[in-house]
Every structure is written in structure tokens, then in C-alpha cells.
């Protein structure tokens, strides 16, 4: 077990190094950092001195080592556009995106899992057919269109919910949260649903497929024959066994949720990392782009580690078999 976790941690470090390398190459080879940092009136000699000072003439490998070292210390460099430290810019935006992503994920689970179980248990029902047809259409509608539709219905026509921004926020230390005010929740609702719809359909389809597979297995038939109550059978015996693949996919998808929040944030003008990333692309602000990549990869790796640990909690068999 310890070996397994250690192995995964080493793998994660390598993934992070690869992404850091990508970010560094972006920074180093897309455009010249010196021309970005200096104005037109800077003399060539001054530019050369700056180049030497910043160590841009050093060998590639030592530059990369220094880059990685700085990142570990939390020094992410400066934005070309705003001249502010990138670390601060990203840190300001992280709470908004994380809250949005987590709430979206919770919505997709709370609706997706029961819907998946229901459609698996009653495959011929009218409601099942309706749900399945709706999800097929739901998958085909681009995220931004779902967002526009929600804005139109709940924001413009009914006027119930705000259509942009985060609403009222509360400052907790350095974390600006919108989860503690009614206003904040109202602002959060539409973007979170928009972001959650795709995950929802995915979760539902997955739970449904797994449930149908499990319900056919021998131990379920045996439990049925023995007269285990249906509710207990469905939720304890069957659903518990579908959870391993479901958690894997959801874990893998969380990176997707964070990345897809780019679109949602753009539609709702949600001041998160995605919006920052879009701006940085528009202005070719390479440092911000690179750091965004590294931060996304870090979340991705972190979530996957947690998922691996969850396996052990969910599947008792994994606790014994760590001989390899």
C-alpha cells in the first residue's frame, strides 16, 4: 500500500516536471522575453545587459533548473501585460474557479448518480427514455449555448438570478468566498449548472452502464433469490460496486471541469482563472499562460492522488494486495 502511494507520488512529480518544462519552453521560445519586458527606447546595450542579468544567456538546462526552483518557492515571475507578479494574479482568481468547479461537480453527482441508478433499474420506462433522449441532446449542446439559454430564461425573462459576476463575497483570510452570502449563491447557481451539465450526463451514463452490468452478475441474482430487500440490494450491494469506475472518471474529469470553466467564466464574466487565461491568450501574456498550465496540472495531479487513496477506502480488496 505504502509502495503503491509512493509510486504514484513519484509519477506525479514527473508529470509536474513535464508540464513545468512545457511552460518553460513556452516562456523561453515563444517571443523574446527581453523585447516584451523593455520598451522601444531601450538601447541594444541595455537589452543585452538585462539579458545577462536575468541569466537568459546561461545554458538551457540550468535556466530550466532555476525556473523550476523559483516555482517551488512560489515565484512565478511577472505578467507582461500588467507588470504584476503572476503568483498574486492567479492566487486572486483561484477561489472563484475552485468554488465554481466544486459546486458544479456536486450538482452533477447529486443529480447524475440517482438518475443513472433509476435509468438502469427501469430501462424500459417512459421517464428513462425521456432522460436518455434529453442527455443525448444535452451532450450535443455546447456549454456556451447552455449558459446563454440559462441567462436568457432565468436572468432576462424571469429576472430571478443575476447573469454576471460573483455577487456578494466574504473575505476569509486571503480566500474571497461567495459561498457565505445568499447573493453569492444566487450568482453562483447559473454558472455552476452550466458547467455541471456535461459532467452530469457523463456521470449518469456511466452509473447506468455500470449498474446494468452489476445487476446481471451472479452475486446480485443470489442476493435476490435469498430475498434481500430491493432497496438494500440496489444501493448497498449494487451501487457500491459501481463506485470505483465512477470515482475514477469523475476524478479524471475534474481537470476537465476546471478547464471547461474557461468557457463558462467567459459567458458569465465570472472572475476566475479561466477568464484570466483567455485574456492572457488574447494579449500573448506568456508568463500567465505558462503558470495557468502549471496550476491546472497541479490540481489534476492532486485530484488523481486523492482518487487513488479513495480507491483504498472504497475497495477493501486493494488494502490486502500490495505484494507487487
Amino acid at each position: 500500500m505504502v509502495y503503491f502511494i509512493l509510486k504514484r507520488m513519484v509519477q506525479s512529480v514527473f508529470v509536474m516536471l513535464a508540464v513545468a518544462f512545457l511552460a518553460f519552453s513556452l516562456f523561453r521560445f515563444v517571443g523574446d522575453p527581453i523585447t516584451q519586458m523593455t520598451g522601444v527606447e531601450t538601447s541594444v546595450a541595455d537589452q543585452e545587459r538585462l539579458r545577462e542579468e536575468l541569466g537568459l544567456n546561461d545554458p538551457f538546462v540550468s535556466q530550466f533548473m532555476r525556473f523550476t526552483g523559483d516555482m517551488l518557492k512560489g515565484d512565478f515571475g511577472f505578467s507582461y501585460r500588467t507588470r504584476q507578479p503572476v503568483a498574486d494574479m492567479i492566487a486572486d482568481r483561484i477561489p472563484a474557479t475552485l468554488e465554481l468547479g466544486v459546486v458544479a461537480l456536486i450538482i452533477s453527482l447529486v443529480v447524475g448518480v440517482p438518475a443513472g441508478v433509476y435509468t438502469a433499474l427501469k430501462p424500459r420506462g417512459v421517464l428513462t427514455q425521456t432522460i436518455l433522449m434529453t442527455t443525448l441532446v444535452g451532450v450535443s449542446i455546447p456549454t456556451f449555448v447552455i449558459g446563454i439559454m440559462l441567462i436568457f430564461i432565468f436572468g432576462v425573462q424571469l429576472g430571478w438570478l443575476p447573469t454576471f459576476g460573483r455577487g456578494g463575497t466574504v473575505q476569509i483570510g486571503s480566500w474571497e468566498s461567495s459561498l457565505f452570502t445568499i447573493d453569492g449563491w444566487r450568482a453562483l447557481l447559473l454558472p455552476a449548472i452550466t458547467l455541471g451539465v456535461y459532467q452530469l450526463t457523463l456521470t449518469m451514463r456511466l452509473v447506468r452502464a455500470e449498474m446494468m452490468e452489476v445487476m446481471r452478475s451472479d452475486y446480485i441474482r443470489f442476493a435476490m433469490a435469498r430475498g434481500v430487500p430491493m432497496g438494500r440490494l440496489h444501493y448497498k450491494h449494487a451501487l457500491a460496486n459501481t463506485m470505483v469506475p465512477v470515482i475514477t472518471i469523475i476524478g479524471l474529469q475534474f481537470g476537465g471541469v476546471i478547464a471547461f470553466s474557461i468557457v463558462t467564466e467567459s459567458v458569465f464574466q465570472w472572475p476566475g482563472m479561466g477568464l484570466l487565461f483567455l485574456e492572457s491568450i488574447r494579449f500573448v501574456d506568456i508568463p500567465v499562460m505558462g503558470v495557468y498550465l502549471v496550476v491546472i496540472a497541479f490540481f489534476f495531479v492532486l485530484v488523481n492522488l486523492v482518487v487513488d487513496l479513495l480507491y483504498v477506502a472504497i475497495d477493501p480488496r486493494l488494502r490486502i494486495s500490495d505484494v507487487s
Binding site: G256, A259, F260, I262, L278
Partner: peptide, 9 residues
């Protein structure tokens, strides 16, 4: 691991 939209962007 990188969603398509992120790669394209």
C-alpha cells in the same frame, strides 16, 4: 489529460 479546448487554446 489536457482537455481538447485547453490544447486548442
Amino acid at each position: 489529460a489536457l482537455p481538447a479546448i485547453l490544447t486548442a487554446l
